[in-house]
């Protein structure tokens, strides 16, 4: 790729906006992250590796990524159905349902944590139906997945809605005239055009799950090696005045999240290029 300015535009302001963008991103994103990396390098490789390779750290990181991935997958399926229903059909109270999708955005995470714990606890509204089978929905991995799913739902729905609204009705009619069944129309005409949006939604829900802290600490039980998420471990380290330990976990999280999101973005970019019909 060649670095160059876009062609002459009637609207001025390229220099100004680029300058601001660089400054703003540096201040808000780059600077804190750099400080984090510097802090962790200051303690040397040996100490860093010792902290990071500790079984408790390893377990918590693995738990965080696994639960976030499962929650994002659940949301990709459930959120897709919700978005599909909200966009494609008209029904009473549609606006209310639509507004409800945003609730996880708006609620303070502590509030949602308490609410979820109350409902899913073995004496709670939903939890009591699982208790007889010895399935514990809270203070277990399930609890973490429930909280992450709750928090990630709007990301999938809100990224899918515009893509579904943009679907060309005539494309579906053309497919039907050509003899395609409903399933074939969905599989070969609709599906390829919404994959990019679905991937974006999945990536955002996944990232949101990785970063969730507030609601999970209420519902997970925070048992070391079992239900302790990485963010909590960082807090624990900080409370023990182990700043270096906390930052090294943070760096591991940072790098792995970046790599994961970058690859999802590349996948999404590739699929949307294909969609635009560029060979």
């Amino acid at each position: 790729m060649v670095w160059r300015f876009k062609k002459h535009s009637v609207l001025p302001g390229f220099g100004l906006t680029l300058g601001f963008t660089v400054f703003y991103l540096s201040l808000i994103v780059l600077l804190p992250l750099t400080a984090l990396c510097l802090k962790s390098t200051s303690m040397g490789w040996a100490v860093f590796w010792e902290t990071v390779s500790h079984p408790r750290v390893w377990a918590s990181c693995r738990l965080t990524y696994e639960t976030a991935a499962i929650a994002a997958l659940i949301n990709a399926v459930g959120g897709f159905i919700v978005a599909w229903c909200l966009v494609r059909y008209d029904f009473p109270l549609k606006r209310v349902f639509d507004a409800m999708v945003d609730l996880p955005f708006a609620l303070p995470t502590a509030v949602s944590g308490i609410a979820l714990t109350t409902i899913y606890a073995s004496s709670g509204l939903i939890g009591q139906w699982f208790a007889p089978w010895d399935i514990k929905l809270v203070y277990s991995r399930w609890g973490i997945i429930i909280a992450m799913t709750f928090i990630g739902l709007p990301f999938v729905v809100r990224t899918l809605q515009p893509a579904l609204e943009d679907l060309d009705k005539e494309n579906e009619e053309a497919a039907a005239c050509l003899g395609a069944s409903r399933w074939q129309t969905f599989r070969f005409v609709i599906w390829p055009t919404i994959i990019p949006a679905l991937l974006t939604g999945f990536a955002m829900a996944f990232a949101r799950g990785l970063g969730e802290y507030g609601s999970i600490v209420f519902i997970s039980g925070n048992m070391p090696m079992k239900t302790e998420i990485a963010s909590l471990l960082i807090i624990t380290k900080l409370e023990q005045h182990d700043v270096a330990g906390a930052t090294s976990i943070a760096v591991v999280l940072l790098v792995s999240s970046f790599v994961l999101l970058l690859s999802i973005n590349l996948l999404q970019w590739w699929s949307s290029e294909r969609l635009r019909g560029v060979s």
């Binding site: 060309d168 005539e170 494309n171 009619e173 053309a174 497919a175 039907a176 005239c177 050509l178 003899g179 395609a180 069944s181 070969f188 005409v189 390829p192 055009t193 294909r274 969609l275 635009r276 019909g277 060979s279």
Partner: peptide, 22 residues
């Protein structure tokens, strides 16, 4: 008889081509 069994060829004003297909 539903559309897909009627064996009609339909041409739309705005082409309605599948843009992700060659």
């Amino acid at each position: 008889c539903p559309v897909r069994h009627r064996e009609v060829g339909f041409v739309f004003q705005h082409y309605a081509l599948f843009r992700h297909m060659s």
